[in-house]
Amino acid sequence: MQRVNMIMAESPGLITICLLGYLLSAECTVFLDHENANKILNRPKRYNSGKLEEFVQGNLERECMEEKCSFEEAREVFENTERTTEFWKQYVDGDQCESNPCLNGGSCKDDINSYECWCPFGFEGKNCELDVTCNIKNGRCEQFCKNSADNKVVCSCTEGYRLAENQKSCEPAVPFPCGRVSVSQTSKLTRAETVFPDVDYVNSTEAETILDNITQSTQSFNDFTRVVGGEDAKPGQFPWQVVLNGKVDAFCGGSIVNEKWIVTAAHCVETGVKITVVAGEHNIEETEHTEQKRNVIRIIPHHNYNAAINKYNHDIALLELDEPLVLNSYVTPICIADKEYTNIFLKFGSGYVSGWGRVFHKGRSALVLQYLRVPLVDRATCLRSTKFTIYNNMFCAGFHEGGRDSCQGDSGGPHVTEVEGTSFLTGIISWGEECAMKGKYGIYTKVSRYVNWIKEKTKLT
């Protein structure tokens, strides 16, 4: 034993070699072989497995989906700052455009905790909710729209109204504003409101030439003092309507412009014939205590009207009353817009006519005020429907199939267009061939041609 100890002390290297040989010859039971080890760690190889990531292109799944990435790591994937920024906006807080917040056709661009709407022409605001041009839906104005110097929408209202708090709607500024039905039992019968379409306001006024200088022999019209197929109006439903009495009662109609003036057809009036105007009328054979009678003290036909040349060209006249009318729910003026808007309103496509005229061709006159909704007829169809001249200051309205029309005794009465609950004068009943005849239409004086003249002559002093 002493000898062994001496050998170990003198030859430590020998001992180490012996131990190493023993270990190498022993069977290893701690580690699995290569094949079995792979069965336990069965993990798919990654895209760049075996390579240094710093030297390969980034992978979106590896960089940002398996674990949260930084902007720089995302930049490695896209290799483009702009594309990385677009991805980053949604990656950080989701897609803010998912709810489609942009209105009126706006395009949404996502941002971090926010979004941006790219608005089409005519709109602005956070969600493109603000109209900035009158060309689109009248700028959301209830009545009139004008573009300011910086191309912003400025709404306005006709006389007797003021802008509401929203700067879009119009509200009454006087007790009985024009064009409004205020009798409670008839307010439910107000005709369907007309909503502004998209309009090209630059070209809204037709490029028409008034044929002022045409000389033409007097034409022989049949029954051209021209509501057939209409309905009984309720008291106060058309408070701007008046009836004219002269040699015979209810020979023509008219509309209240203001307390002192009536507008009617020029062919209705004769110099030297006494005319009485009755406002607030409903049943011409009954006294309903809503009527107001006034005498006409002055007749002003349009300066281009000449019955000797043509009885229905420039067929418009103004009547001055001896005493002002007292405005109330049964006696209310009709609204008159400017030339541009009167023309736009007419193009809405349908209007209402009213009167006490004959209820059928050569038949009896109506006792109760009649009204009828009539569609506008395109000019080409209008011209083809008659052998008589249709001037540019006239328009056609009615039904091709016949059966409904204005008729004798309705002449001078109103053709009105309702705009968001307020009625505007767009025409004056003038003439036609018979009444409600198939293929024939009622012919009306186009008020847009005469609004400046009306307003100039009827100013209240």
Rank of each mutant, 00 (worst) to 15 (best):
T389A: 11
L425P: 00
R75P: 08
S11M: 15
A317D: 00
Y391S: 12
C28S: 14
Y330E: 04
G179N: 02
F424V: 01
V377N: 02
V174A: 08
A436M: 14
A149R: 09
S406W: 13
S385I: 13
R298V: 01
S204M: 12
H302D: 02
G398I: 03
N393K: 03
V353G: 02
F251Q: 07
I336P: 00
K168C: 06
W356H: 07
V243D: 02
C117M: 01
C97T: 02
E35Q: 10
T290Y: 09
Q219E: 10
K89G: 12
G246Y: 01
Y450E: 00
V195N: 12
G160N: 07
I112V: 12
N295R: 03
K459E: 15
V269A: 08
F55A: 15
L41M: 10
C102Y: 00
R3D: 05
V202R: 11
I40E: 04
I214W: 06
P120R: 11
N203A: 11
G413H: 14
C145K: 02
L103V: 08
V153L: 06
E10L: 13
T458Y: 00
E61D: 06
K89E: 04
P197M: 11
T332A: 11
L244R: 00
L372V: 11
F31N: 15
E270W: 03
K459S: 14
Y441E: 00
C382K: 03
Q96I: 14
V181C: 06
A26S: 09
E53C: 04
H303I: 06
I454A: 01
D315L: 01
H289Y: 06
T422Q: 03
V242L: 02
V331Y: 00
A337Y: 00
E124Y: 13
C155M: 00
V269L: 11
V368F: 07
L346Q: 08
S406M: 11
I262T: 01
H303L: 05
T209F: 08
N135C: 04
K362V: 06
A207R: 05
V77I: 06
R294E: 01
S204P: 10
F424R: 01
E72S: 09
L367T: 14
R384V: 09
L425Y: 02
N245D: 06
E418W: 06
F196V: 09
Y341A: 11
A317R: 00
P239S: 02
N147K: 15
F388V: 15
E456G: 06
T332L: 09
F144H: 02
C335M: 00
K362D: 14
G363Q: 12
F71A: 04
A366Y: 11
E285I: 10
A380S: 07
L367D: 09
T332N: 04
G179K: 00
T16H: 09
L130I: 12
V359F: 14
T85H: 07
L52E: 15
E73P: 06
A265Y: 01
D111I: 15
K168Q: 12
G355R: 15
P324N: 05
R180P: 02
C252E: 00
P239K: 01
L460E: 09
P301V: 12
L60S: 14
G105S: 15
R373S: 11
T84H: 07
T445C: 03
N283S: 06
G363V: 07
E340R: 14
S406V: 05
E142W: 04
T84V: 05
I17C: 05
A266H: 02
Y450K: 02
R358A: 14
R379E: 08
Y47F: 11
G106M: 02
R140D: 13
D93A: 15
E418T: 05
P239H: 01
V195L: 12
R364D: 13
G351H: 05
